[in-house]
Design a protein around this nucleic acid. Structure first.
Lengths: 345, 345
DNA sequence: CCTGGATCTGACAACGTTGTCCAGGCTCTA
DNA sequence: TAGAGCCTGGACAACGTTGTCAGATCCAGG
């Protein structure tokens, strides 16, 4: 009775353990372990008996115990902004594929662009002793990671750099991409060019804004405040921002959209607008080529970002990689029509 | 020396444990545990000392050990076909949100539509003792899950039913949706209607095909073999299949596309085609409204599928839910133009 | 028949945590 | 002032696995 009371309440109707298998097969505990792990030194006859017991009982090794004993979980964590964002799909998948190639599982979570939630998630993953972390940061202070890094948790940041700590990071060249995109519009004769982007506290947003400014400055075009919308992110307000730029006292003839969600909303606004307005968007998206006109974009390779990050992560784990680096992947301008429209109005 | 030799090689440069914290704070092991878990019965002064030691050492509780002791992992597994598929993004996210609300983490993996890989993933998740599984099955025989179910792993299938076992499943009404979509085309005067779908061994594909057949039969229209393309899935072959239907001896005037990827490819083909052809697709997709003409679709609510499944999962874990059920969520026809084109040619 | 070596097997401790239980110190009341 | 009862803290076992090491078994060769 005291015996059963001591048993912790657990959800698995007391699954069979190696001990149970051993008892049933009439062998020792360690022999079962050997069979389960394919270690040598077991006679075929013994192995058969053990295998039979395993099948009969429906035994499945408890990896929690294994992890506890061995110290490595063979799993990595991925923290991103929103699993549902089409930009992150290919990225996650790429990370997963690399993890799989290294025999690791992927645990992931969405931070919803909330720094507290990011930290909560990251620490939960650390408590589970993931071997490594791929983080698309929401916050800009990652000092909370210091004990983890010191303890040897491999970490790679993607898409945006870590804040206040020195860590590996894999980025797209947001600055260069935006500058090229805006320069492309300028080359097609535009001078009054609008920029709609996310909050400048997000690194990529800030870099893209910087690219926009650089391109304008290179062309000697002074920027009017009314041409810029920053930190506006939900569709309704992006719509309003776009409309204001198009109808203000000094209306823009072209728009540079800072990310795929903004681009999509702007496409909708422009579709309702009588005067043709040129558009270049950061991030490619499906069907961009089928719209009328096709949408010219600065494309970044999300899968490649994920792949690169995951590969670096496993090289950290191998010990091949020591010094944190910053890797910038190039972007690619894809012209489809919307960015080549001449200024109108 | 024997001491260090016995220590297993592990990746975490020997992180501090509760024992270390206890030693540093000059208290007992259990007291540290109490502080970490916010249990009552610790004086503020003691708590302060312990907290100080925790911060100083960078201690983080090892959840593997905790799981081993407590028997519940507070994590659930999600196995789907492809994380990168935009259809699964909102679904995963919805599952994650529900999990989060229950304090559980999400571990997920892509089966890549390969039954062996699905099984491998599912069993790996079971070995980690996830509390429950949400599975979008690739295979059609899930008897391998029987020991797990018996052991009390909560399981919900989504989008497609389990094979050979009795389990909870949450589906969209593929049959009804497809029938309505095809009936819609018939109502607009079409009689030669093509169907392009995935392999009929996939449940949803088979159901949608059945819906197509039912609608045609209801209207008394005999189906010609040349109007159906089944099991073709990569863009190039879908393209060829569509072109054959459009140019064959008895060319179709409308196409019903069995899933979002097929729809997108068909849109491309039709865009190059001189004669207007009507189109209804299963699954909604972003920007469908902005194409010329807008694409009429049978929409299913991926997020709702995920939410429903995850909620049922946690109700299984609560013990509120015992008997497996089959839940079918309705689909919704969204008319945007492409499905309302009259027959031409 | 015995010995040496190789091969196979099992007892045991340890991984880091939590549940149980008991000891000691304190407060409060009769 | 003694006894009851509460509060705090700590010793110990157990969770299921794996590494270590020593014991058991077998066979060939002397």
């Amino acid at each position: 009775m005291a015996d059963t009371a001591r048993r912790p309440e657990n959800r698995y109707g007391n699954r069979p353990t190696m001990k149970d298998v051993a008892a049933r097969a009439g062998v020792g505990l360690k022999t079962v372990s050997r069979v389960v792990n394919g270690e040598p030194g077991v006679t075929p006859e013994t192995e058969r008996r053990v295998q039979e017991a395993i099948d009969a009982l429906g035994f499945r090794r408890n990896d929690s115990a294994r992890v506890l004993r061995k110290g490595s979980t063979a799993s990595i964590g991925l923290v991103l902004e929103d699993l549902a964002d089409p930009f992150y799909g290919p990225l996650s998948r790429a990370v997963e594929e690399i993890a799989r190639a290294h025999g690791a599982l992927l645990i992931n979570g969405s931070s919803a662009e909330d720094p507290d939630r990011e930290q909560e998630l990251v620490l939960a993953l650390c408590a589970r002793r993931v071997d490594g972390l791929v983080i698309i940061p929401a916050g800009d202070d990652h000092r909370y990671l210091e004990p983890e890094l010191k303890a040897g948790v491999a970490t790679v940041f993607v898409d945006r750099p870590a804040g206040q700590i020195d860590a590996d990071v894999v980025l797209s060249d947001s600055f260069g991409g935006a500058r090229d995109g805006v320069a492309h519009l300028i080359a097609h004769g535009h001078r009054r060019i609008g920029f709609i982007g996310d909050m400048p506290r997000i690194h990529t947003s800030a870099e893209r804004l910087r690219g926009y400014r650089a391109a304008m400055e290179d062309a000697g075009i002074p920027i009017e405040d009314a041409w810029m919308s920053l930190g506006v992110t939900d569709p309704e307000r992006v719509r309003r921002a776009a409309e204001e730029m198009l109808t203000g006292p000094s209306p823009v003839t072209a728009v540079f959209a800072g990310n795929n969600r903004v681009t999509v909303t702007v496409v909708r606004v422009l579709a309702e607008h009588r005067r043709p307005v040129a558009l270049v968007g950061f991030d490619d998206f499906e069907l961009a080529d089928l719209l009328q006109p096709g949408v010219t974009v600065v494309a970044q390779d999300a899968a490649q970002l994920g792949r690169t990050a995951a590969e670096r992560l496993f090289r950290q784990l191998d010990g091949t990689l020591i010094t944190p680096e910053r890797i910038e992947l190039p972007t690619r301008l894809i012209t489809r029509g919307s960015g080549e429209l001449p200024p109108a109005g």
